[in-house]
Each structure stands twice: as C-alpha cells, then as structure tokens.
C-alpha cells in the first residue's frame, strides 16, 4: 500500500525539496529492509538507457531560455531542469517498485492485490481470479526463463547460430526456441489446470487462505509516516 502511495507521491511532487525528502525516505526504507545493494543496482541497470533517453528528450524539446545550441537543437535551462526532474522521478519509481518486489513474496503481493481489488467485486470484477492469474504468471516466469536457456543450449548443440545474419534471418533463427517454448508452456498449462481440477480447486467466494494477511500495528505506523511525508513533500513548493 505504502509503495503505491509513494508512487502516487512521486508523480505529484512538484518541487526539488520534496523530491529530496522522498528520496531520503526511500533510501532509509531500502536500508531498513536489508536488501543487498547489488540487487537494487542490477534492477536499475537495464533501465539506464530509458533514463538517459528521457533526459535527452527533455533537454532538447522544452521551450525556454536557450543556453546552448547544437545544429537545430536548442538546450534550454528549463529543459535541463525538467529533464533532471523527470529522470529522478523515474529513478525513484524503479527504485520503489524493485524495493517492493525484493522485500515482498509474490504470494503475499498477489494476496494484497486481491484484497485491494476486492471492493471492485460489487461491480462484478473477478478480483480473486485476477490475483490467481497473477500468481501463476509470476510463478512461471523463472521456469520459462530456465527453459528458454535449456532450449537455446540444445539448439546450439544442434548447430544453431543465434549471433550472425541480418535482422530477418535472426528473427527466423529464434523460431526453434520460441516454438518448443510455447508447446511446452501450453502442455504445462494443461497439466496445471488438470492438477487444479483434480484437487477440486474453486476460486472466489468463501475460499479461505492458508496464509492470512494481517495488518499489524507496524503496518499502520508505516502507513501514517508515509502519508505524512507525502503530504509534506507535496506541500513544499520551494
């Protein structure tokens, strides 16, 4: 919950001082959660390109006081400011979500989502089914990745080449990986549904949980602290 609040806050904050406060709060939390810094950094790594890209786009496209010119591109003071601002926002966004996924198990995460969505049941939204599908999807990501690696290796052992050739050729080269991957995934889905059926699975109404999600005092305290910090940083205008 609090993470969602933080994310909302990241989008709402307008001033630099607010950003600094939220950033400090995030880092303290990550530190308290005892997440290995290497993991956090690894999560950010692939997104650096996107960060730089947004930074540059803002540098060049914002109207305002021109401070530097490259050919037809104008870098403006406002551009730099806004670019940095958005980039830091994005950075926090990634940081907070990876903090969430690194500290919370997928199961409690989906349970939480189910709880949050349950008010939608009045509008006949199948909250439980959505949560279940998410759990299954999350559960099979590592399996699929493992399998991709295995199939890739098997096809390389049969002389497949994934490194050379032009663009179209390369896409064609991936068919021997994708097709077996899909076939196996479908088979697995089939088996899973049969196994669930065999254990008399019925979702939704009246289904109890093995793990009960409890909102403890710590959660309330954390929630309130977060809320205060958010409102505070939102109100700061300087």
């Amino acid at each position: 919950m609090a993470v969602i609040l933080i994310i909302i806050a990241i989008f709402l904050v307008k001033s630099w001082s607010g950003l600094v406060i939220i950033g400090a709060y995030l880092f303290i939390n990550i530190f308290l959660a005892k997440v290995h810094p290497k993991f956090v950094l690894k999560g950010i790594q692939p997104l650096i390109v996107i960060l730089l890209f947004t930074l540059l786009i803002h540098f060049f496209t914002t109207q305002g006081e021109i401070i530097y010119r490259i050919w037809v591109l104008n870098i403006t003071r406002e551009g730099i400011q806004r670019g940095l601002f958005i980039a830091v926002r994005l950075f926090y966004l990634i940081l907070s979500t990876s903090w969430l996924t690194l500290t919370t198990s997928p199961i409690s995460l989906t349970d939480g989502i189910e709880r949050l969505l349950s008010f939608l049941k009045i509008f006949k939204v199948p909250a439980h089914e959505i949560a279940m599908m998410m759990t299954i999807a999350l559960r099979f990501i590592p399996t699929l990745m493992e399998e991709t690696e295995k199939i890739t290796k098997a096809q390389i052992a049969r002389g497949a080449d994934f490194e050379s050739g032009n663009f179209i050729k390369r896409i064609q080269n991936f068919l021997p990986i994708i097709i077996p991957l899909f076939i196996n995934a479908f088979q697995r889905a089939d088996e899973l549904s049969i196994a669930m059926e065999a254990r008399c699975y019925r979702g939704g109404e009246d289904r109890t949980h093995y793990r009960q999600l409890l909102i403890t005092n710590t959660d309330y305290i954390f929630f309130i602290i977060t809320l205060i910090i958010l409102i505070g940083s939102y109100l700061l205008i300087i």
Binding site: E147, A154, Q155, A157, R158, P176, P180, I183
Partner: peptide, 13 residues
C-alpha cells in the same frame, strides 16, 4: 561432439 540433453524431445519444433 553431439550433446543430447535430458528430454531431448522438448526441443522439437
């Protein structure tokens, strides 16, 4: 050197 993985039929396409 030919290598057949475990369950080699899983690579059929």
């Amino acid at each position: 050197i030919g290598l057949a993985f475990q369950y080699p039929e899983n690579q059929f396409f």
